[in-house]
Amino acid sequence: MTFGREWGARLAGHLVEAGVPEGEARRLAGDSVAEAREAGREPAELYGPAVAYARELARTLRAVAATAAPLARARGPVVLRLSRVTKRYRRRTVLGGVNLVLRAGEVAAVVGANGSGKSTLLNICAGVTRASGGLVERTARVGYAPQQQGVSPLLTPAEHFRLFGAVHGMGRRRSVAVGEQLAGQLGWRPRADVVAAHLSGGTRQKLNVVLSELNRPDLILLDEPYQGFDQTSYLDFWDQVFRWRDAGAGVLVVTHLLHDLERVDHVLELHRVDE
């Protein structure tokens, strides 16, 4: 009667934590236990630890959802154009004549060694830093995830959603509902009573990413947003980037990892100008 019951309950719980709706999580857990029973083996023996299997299962579900009804990918109008953009701090040149044209429905990766000006370029695109020369043209509806201090350590995820939602003119309930739905796509179910300071580094970065896409912007600017992500979250993140792209957003990602670069539309490599 109690065959695999405890394992099944743990699996359902971990699936819910990974953003799977409760009903579906219970159904999947029930199916997994039933399959193990049919095979005449303990579920833990067949599938491994519930936590690891839940993570795999949740990721597969998200991948299936992403590819079940792929949107026709169309490159739209230009959302970001950089023409000979330069940046100097006193006598030191950080950026020397950067050019890029990014359209809606495209992903650009900015790569380069430490100190090559990647974050400076992203801040220029966001409008936080003024370029010393050249022209920056950018669409007004923008999402922005800075590398550090993009969230308040003393606020819960729901309070962040409300705050950012208020800027976009979204109501309180809608902001929280949209935020939680987007978090689910990154395999994260925010808890109501935990402030950002008590989240793990990777989960805090997921919050950072979710906040950048709360209003479905035309252009999303991300500065190494996957720091602290585990392997599954990292893959989920790139899946998410390509979902945004397929939904018609332009995405600019600062990265120092070279994985997945063959899938992006533009690679902008920066070098230290003084070298």
Partner: peptide, 15 residues
């Protein structure tokens, strides 16, 4: 001082 970076981010998106 603590809210400055968050304020910058909110300003970028239209606050």
């Amino acid at each position: 001082v603590g809210a400055r970076r968050l304020g910058e981010r909110l300003s970028v998106i239209g606050a």
